[in-house]
Design a protein around this nucleic acid. Structure first.
Lengths: 196, 196
DNA sequence: AACCTATGTAAGTGATTACTTACTTACATA
DNA sequence: TATGTAAGTAAGTAATCACTTACATAGGTT
């Protein structure tokens, strides 16, 4: 049953995320992770120095997976509005499969208990906003997006609408499909940012 | 030092909210509340049956205060777009003075640990959306808002943009002023919902 | 003055937690 | 085949938590 350090690490991260989805971040104890992985609780500390470190690794794991999923969208060179629309679609699909992400996003651990984690998430937000902003800039040149607004501010606004949707989704206990909201949300965003 | 039941209750609620703002919901222990109020820890249980009940009371206290603050805005009869703009302003000012609110909104307690609390917040969201929706309907009749969109869905979208802003605000550790974002946010919302 | 009720407290209790220590064992490599 | 390293564990430990019990007292009512 003995496994490689890296293998165990990802098993622990995955289990922590699954557990966060099911019981919430604060109930993700080292014991519950260990049970789910199928190892003893002290073994967790062979692979992570502290419980905190597990959540850091989990956030970075998720962010990395998200940007990897967005890569094919960003490589496209067609109309920027179609590209942003596709980014919406991929992002929503990604989150809809990972309930642990909103649980982490709306946790005490992120917001107050772990300032370093907060900084990491701020950086991820900034990176996401940069991605959206560059699409908006390209779209402004193409004449499909408005030219009278700051792309960075607009990207922040777009990120906020999605994050707000995730909040409502989590508070509803994931009781509606994100994808079914995609079209509606896009219509508002398009109305606010599209060239007339 | 002996005080009225109702007086102590509100003291406990206020202290819980202040603590939530400073140290996060999960660190709001009955001991820390008691210390802040200036009573012994078991005395908390003279006024609230469980710790859970304190958060329920806090949420209802805040919601009641918010809708009371919005009342004068809702009473107005002028142009609906000006009314919605004013609602934005009052809402943002209200939240900016109460850091405990986003802490509660982005807590494990709300999202997973207490399903009843989640339901309560869902109802508050629904009430807020109803308020915004009725302004949008009035504005559609006045010809200032779009008539080709569902007011309820639009209200949900508007709520999401504000909630997303609150998320970014909390993750930044309240490091920017909500009011300075008001104008920008309004411009996007107005572009998405105003009649052309 | 007697009494009652509600607010108050000191001193627990049992459950849970992240993390440690001391020891074991699987396994790649020399 | 011998050996070092790293993955594994059982059994703690000290701290923290919500909540309870048993008792004290303030202050309004009679």
């Amino acid at each position: 049953m003995r496994k490689d350090h890296e293998t165990r690490k990802t098993e622990i991260i995955q289990s922590a995320l699954d557990l966060a989805a099911q019981v919430g971040v604060s109930a993700v104890t080292t014991q519950s992770i260990a049970d789910r992985v199928g190892i003893a609780q002290p073994t967790i500390f062979r692979h992570f120095k502290t419980r905190e470190a597990i959540f850091h690794a989990a956030i970075e794991f998720v962010a990395s997976a998200l940007f990897k999923a967005l890569e094919p969208v960003l490589a496209k060179t067609g109309p920027a509005d179609k590209q942003l629309r596709k980014l919406f679609s991929v992002h929503l699909k990604f989150i809809s499969k990972r309930h642990g992400v909103p649980r982490l996003l709306f946790s005490d651990r992120l917001h107050v208990e772990d300032p370093r984690l907060r900084e990491t998430v701020q950086n991820i937000f900034a990176r996401y906003i940069g991605v959206v902003s560059s699409i908006l800039k390209r779209g402004a040149q193409q004449g499909v997006f408005r030219t009278d607004i700051d792309p960075d501010e607009t990207a922040k606004f777009i990120a906020a609408t999605m994050q707000g949707l995730f909040l409502q989704w989590s508070v509803s206990d994931f009781n509606f499909s994100l994808q079914e909201q995609e079209e509606k949300l896009w219509n508002y965003v398009w109305a606010a940012t599209g060239h007339r």
